[in-house]
């Protein structure tokens, strides 16, 4: 009984290591395929469309609302200390350091990541990937590499758009509705948000998130069981795993960047 259990545990462990190994081998194969994309920018542009442009609406809408909520909540707290002039700082720092990269990455995982997994999984299920291999076309270079690059490029842009829209959302509520002075909204913000510590670190965060989310999405699609059930499971796994990865990595990166 105990040995059965131990054996099962060992099997599980080996399976996990196998998946980790496969994921990394795929990652390196995708990286090796990146230089080839230089001569085929169209492949990347097409993917930027489906990964970036199609995520734009949800990112803009969420950014706007998150900024508005931040202003409302921040104002109610700050006004107790008579510090409502700092509203700009609160909104901007929350967005640029945390909510911009993280929420944009979570939305990206749900919108673009799941679509990527489903698309690649479906291509595998319908033997399109095999067919490409038999046409002497490497699917890792033609299908996976441009999607990976597009995800990596799109994520920091989406996060920046999210933060910028959020700052203006906060402005509409804070200055427009709650009557914070427009000048101090911006000047407090400028005095306390640092280009390197906050903006650049936020961009670094979203680059890391973009890489991880796209990697997970592509791996799950490429590694799925080639049945419709397998694809739907892989899609769910993509959203769950990449969301968890984003949140865990956010903790680590925050500790490294702002920890001292």
């Amino acid at each position: 009984m105990f040995f059965d259990w131990l054996q099962q545990l060992g099997h599980r462990g080996l399976d996990i290591f196998e998946r980790i190994g496969r994921a990394h081998l795929l990652f390196f194969a995708i990286l090796a395929g990146q230089p080839g994309l230089l001569s085929r920018p169209r492949l990347v542009i097409a993917q930027l469309y489906s990964v970036g442009v199609l995520s734009l609406l949800i990112i803009v809408m969420s950014g706007l609302f998150v900024g508005m909520v931040l202003a409302l909540q921040g104002y109610n707290t700050l006004v107790k200390f008579g510090a409502e002039e700092s509203l700009g700082t609160v909104v901007a720092l929350s967005l640029v350091r945390e909510l911009g990269p993280v929420v944009a990455a979570l939305l990206f995982a749900g919108r673009a990541g799941s679509a990527l997994t489903a698309e690649i999984g479906l291509m595998k299920t319908t033997e399109q990937l095999s067919a490409m291999e038999m046409m002497a076309v490497d699917p890792i270079r033609r299908i996976l590499a441009p999607r990976f690059l597009a995800g990596f490029i799109a994520m920091p842009l989406l996060a920046s758009i999210f933060s910028a829209v959020g700052v203006f959302g906060g402005y509409f509520v804070g200055v427009g509705q709650l009557g914070v002075d427009a000048g101090s909204y911006w000047s407090q913000m400028q005095a306390n948000v640092d280009i390197y510590d906050d903006i650049v670190n936020g961009v670094i965060k979203s680059l890391v998130f973009g890489l991880v989310v796209t990697w997970i999405a592509i791996f799950e699609g490429h590694d799925c069981t080639p049945t419709s059930e397998g694809v739907s499971r892989a899609t769910t796994r993509t959203v769950v795993h990449s969301s968890l990865a984003v949140l865990a990595l956010d903790f680590i990166l925050t500790a490294l960047m702002f920890g001292d």
């Binding site: 469309y49 970036g52 989406l158 920046s160 758009i161 961009v203």
Partner: peptide, 9 residues
């Protein structure tokens, strides 16, 4: 999209 991203940045 790309221009919007850079403008935001």
């Amino acid at each position: 999209f790309v221009v919007a991203g850079f403008v935001a940045l």
